Simulated scan of single mutants.
Amino acid sequence: MDSYNNTICMKLKLNDKDNEDVRNLCAVCNEKRKIYLKLELDIKRWQRKKNKNDEYFVEFLYYENKILVGYLGVCDFGGNSVEISGMVHPDFRRKGIFRKLYLIAKEEWQRKSKAEVLALCDHTATSGLAFINSIGGEYASSEYKMCLTKKALDGESMHIQGIGSLIKLRLATSEDAAEIDSQTSVYFGKPLNEIDGEDVNVVNMDKEVNMDKEDIENPLIQQGNNFISYMALLKEKIIGKIHISIINKEGFMYGFGVLPVFRGKGYGREVLLATLDILKEKRADNIFLEVDSQNKNAIRLYESCGFEEVAVMDYYVIT
């Protein structure tokens, strides 16, 4: 992209080459340091298309001799806080690269928003924690990244007769956009409530999912395997939602919830297991989700379905 050496580029969105560079840098950092980096590249790309507002996110890239060695992303998902996360190539650390990115990014987000700023850091990343401490970060919360175990991934789908026959998933359409936004506010606009962890009953997804061409082509809701939204139905009434994506054969589940009035009946478990069936059918080699460390009921539900904790992401308030 840019032909400059040793420079910082600020971008309102990343093109395909930028995305590839950031992913490659992330892979190097993961390989050498074994840390969890939450960059939200695909979510940000989808949100840009949905909101048509480039100011929601800003990207900062540090190039040395035309090679990307540093990255910092600013995310504003429309809540009460702005999230920042990033990385520096292991061979280029202790040169002040991330501090330079941070100071430039700070000036930019302060110009655009007065929202609280949260810095994300892997629980085991000592250098990242040292930097956050140096800028006065205060611990706020933690989030677990969980992965479906190999045994559960390779196992047979659990289809139990009962309420499972009443629950089905369908692809979301543009007509569901307002309902999705409303449910997102219920689930994540305030502290998470208990999700649902009762007896297991599972939908047979071979019969329940209707893959309409109109749904798949709708750019606001579906983007191939990169972002797919499903509405959870009970007797044709919407009771919840869930989103999935598959990137490089890795499946992700997020935005999952059941409306409060329908909780405590096992429906949440049905939605979760049905979604796992979809991801397995799409040949996901690994399946991940993230959950607040304080949401004990949700964690028990996920563990009962075969998920286990693989990483911890800490959030720090930056003053």
Score class of each variant (00 low, 15 high):
D206I: 05
K213Q: 12
C121Y: 06
I239V: 08
I239N: 00
E175C: 03
E143M: 13
F256T: 08
T7S: 15
K95I: 03
V202A: 09
K280N: 06
K44Q: 15
C121F: 07
D199Q: 00
I163C: 05
H243I: 03
N5Y: 11
E175N: 07
V69D: 01
S81Q: 13
L68C: 10
C121D: 07
I247H: 14
R99P: 02
Y267W: 10
D76A: 12
N201K: 14
L148Q: 04
V200W: 11
R94W: 04
N80I: 15
C75I: 02
E20S: 06
K17P: 00
T7Q: 14
N286L: 08
G266P: 15
L37E: 02
K34D: 06
D154L: 13
K49V: 14
L171I: 05
S3C: 04
N53F: 04
N24R: 12
A119M: 11
G164P: 10
L129F: 07
L169A: 02
G162P: 09
I238S: 02
K95L: 10
K190R: 14
L220K: 12
E55S: 11
A105T: 07
D277Q: 14
I244L: 06
S3T: 11
F252V: 09
G255T: 15
L25N: 08
L148M: 08
L279N: 04
L289D: 01
Q110S: 11
Y56H: 09
I287E: 10
R33K: 14
K49Q: 14
I84K: 09
D18W: 10
K66Q: 13
L166H: 06
Y267V: 09
N193W: 05
L153R: 12
R99E: 10
E236Y: 00
N193M: 13
F77K: 01
G70D: 05
P90T: 09
Y267N: 07
E64I: 05
L14I: 15
K106E: 01
N24E: 15
Q161N: 13
E217S: 06
R263A: 10
G162I: 06
E138S: 09
E64L: 03
L41V: 00
L272K: 03
F57P: 02
E20R: 02
D277Y: 03
E31A: 14
D277F: 01
G79P: 00
I180K: 03
S85N: 15
N201M: 12
A140F: 10
E208V: 12
N286R: 10
R93D: 06
L272E: 09
L120H: 07
D196V: 05
N133A: 13
L148Y: 03
E290C: 09
G264Y: 12
V202Y: 07
R45N: 12
K114C: 08
T275C: 13
I180W: 01
K112A: 14
L166M: 07
K66L: 12
Y187I: 08
V200P: 04
E55W: 04
K95W: 04
R111A: 15
N51A: 03
D277W: 01
S134Q: 06
K66D: 11
K282G: 05
M10I: 13
K114V: 06
G79I: 04
C147T: 11
A125V: 02
N225C: 02
V28N: 05
N248L: 03
V117H: 02
W46M: 11
E107P: 09
G73C: 14
L120E: 07
E59A: 02
L192E: 10
Y71C: 05
N226F: 05
I239A: 01
G137D: 03
K213E: 15
A232Q: 00
A178R: 03
